[in-house]
């Protein structure tokens, strides 16, 4: 964790209610912040100031639309690699250097590197995988989603 990252205990009850409410959605209306503020029992200025702070302090990554990328024609895939621990950092640097890599996690398993690719076309996924394999020297295991049962990442704070 970054040394300057805010601690969750630095959040007061209004911060928490703002985060929880806005994980569920945001109105499409002329004065959306005023609408949400009313719902939270605060005012528009306070809500705007709190949101700005939560974004500045990087407690929130974004505030805006979440797209269904497939409906825009793009493609996503989850990819796993088995990288020897002593070579992990080198390979991570290579993988993270690809702009198509949206996020990358080290996990505790022989398959220890897991990243998500986002590309404009399904064909581009294959191409990027081949380039990652060439650059890293290890095979990529492509695990695109075949079916989706549930997508709701909502974490109450």
């Amino acid at each position: 964790m970054r040394p300057d990252a805010a601690r969750p205990d630095a959040l007061d009850s209004l911060d928490r209610r703002i985060i929880n409410t806005l994980q569920d959605g945001f109105p499409v209306s002329e004065r959306p912040y005023a609408e949400v503020a009313r719902q939270l029992g605060t005012d528009e200025d306070t809500l705007l100031a709190r949101l700005k702070r939560l974004l500045d302090e990087r407690i929130l990554t974004r505030f805006g639309p979440m797209y269904q990328a497939e409906r825009l024609g793009g493609a996503f895939s989850l990819v796993a690699m088995k990288v020897p621990p002593e070579d992990f950092d080198r390979v991570a640097e290579i993988v993270n250097g690809f702009t198509e890599v949206a996020h990358n996690y080290q996990r505790e398993h022989a398959f220890n590197m897991w990243f998500v690719l986002a590309t404009e076309t399904p064909e581009a996924i294959t191409d990027v995988l081949r380039r990652i394999e060439q650059a890293s020297g290890y095979p990529c295991y492509n695990m695109p989603k075949l079916e989706e049962y549930y997508v709701r990442l909502r974490l109450p704070v």
């Binding site: 964790m1 407690i59 990554t61």
Partner: peptide, 20 residues
Amino acid sequence: RNRGVIKRLGVVVRHRELGY
């Protein structure tokens, strides 16, 4: 939003910073 191109509007949290 109704067509599902936008899944939702709202915030995305840094879950680790929030204690998850």
